[in-house]
């Protein structure tokens, strides 16, 4: 029983990382109907830029700089890869361009930071805390709190500020939003900035718990994509639940079955959801009256 509780706790931290990356997929999908398939690479770049920065400053001072870097990287992806595809009304162009950019980012990172994985110094004590016999790393708590905080901040922005409402309006009906005087092209660019920013943030959150390197984003990005599909591409609650399910499924399978099979249950769940409820477990179809 204690072991199971331990596995669940470890799974939660992992799951929140997936949720945060999946949340980034949702942000761009909502406004533009496109996804950045380089989300994992945005995470990887955030982590590596963060790694370089922590050589010169504290972890906490580095975070805002990495957020700015992530936002700029997202703007770059949107301007170079996505905007031309949207302008020419190319239905699938953005898939190829975001994948291409992801590969380029990975190669650039390999040339700057090398092929080997690097240890990211932990800003918090690496000695686990004990709660009723369950060991929790302080960094794992930071992951959960940080991920929830940034998702909550985006949600508050959308609900309270007129700019956030403009983002929601663009997600509802892009043409009608344009008629309101909203520059929807700018809203889409902004959503890419926000999306890559959350990924970069996820990168510096997860880096102290894993190894950091040019290839770290590939699997994380793919699994988070599965989470986004499982939870639903338009449900905030869905990615959190989906992320936790996948995270916990991974740690428990790794222990009880074999670490070789730890990725299987999540992907089985993906296939199952796609077969039974393609909009995702929490995916909602917008109420439309005619």
């Amino acid at each position: 029983m204690e072991i199971l509780a331990q596995l669940i706790v470890s799974g939660i931290a992992l799951g929140m990382i997936y949720a945060l990356i999946a949340f980034g997929y949702q942000l761009t999908f909502a406004t533009s109907g496109t996804l950045n398939f380089g989300q994992g690479e945005a995470l990887m770049l955030g982590a590596l830029v963060g790694l370089t920065l922590v050589g010169h400053m504290s972890y906490w001072l580095m975070i805002p700089l990495v957020l700015v870097f992530g936002a700029l990287q997202g703007i770059f992806v949107e301007r170079v890869g996505v905007q031309p595809a949207i302008k020419t009304k190319s239905e699938f162009g953005w898939i190829m361009t975001t994948i291409s950019l992801a590969i380029i980012f990975k190669n650039v990172a390999e040339n700057i930071w090398g092929h080997d994985d690097i240890t990211f110094p932990s800003p918090l004590p690496t000695e686990p805390l004990q709660f009723m016999g369950i060991r929790v790393l302080p960094m794992e708590i930071l992951v959960v709190v940080g991920a929830l905080a940034i998702m909550l901040a985006v949600e508050l922005f959308n609900r309270k500020s007129i700019y956030g409402k403009a983002v929601v309006a663009t997600s509802n009906d892009r043409d009608a939003a344009g008629l309101m005087g909203i520059n929807t092209g700018m809203v889409i660019t902004f959503s890419y900035a926000l999306s890559s920013m959350t990924a970069a943030f996820a990168g510096v959150l997860v880096a102290p718990l894993t190894l950091t390197g040019a290839t770290m984003g590939v699997v994380l990005g793919l699994k988070a994509f599965a989470v986004a599909i499982i939870g639903g591409l338009n449900s905030g609650m869905g990615v959190i639940v989906g992320g936790l399910i996948l995270g916990i499924a991974e740690t428990t399978t790794g222990y009880y079955v074999s670490t070789g099979y730890k990725d299987v249950p999540g992907l089985l769940l993906l296939l199952l959801v796609l077969a039974i409820k393609p909009a995702g477990m929490f995916g909602k179809s917008v109420i439309k009256k005619v």
Binding site: V168, A169, S171, N172, D175, A176, A177, V286
Partner: peptide, 11 residues
């Protein structure tokens, strides 16, 4: 005010 009303359904 466009044809089909086009209100923002979730707002």
């Amino acid at each position: 005010s466009p044809e089909g009303r086009r209100v923002f359904a979730t707002l």
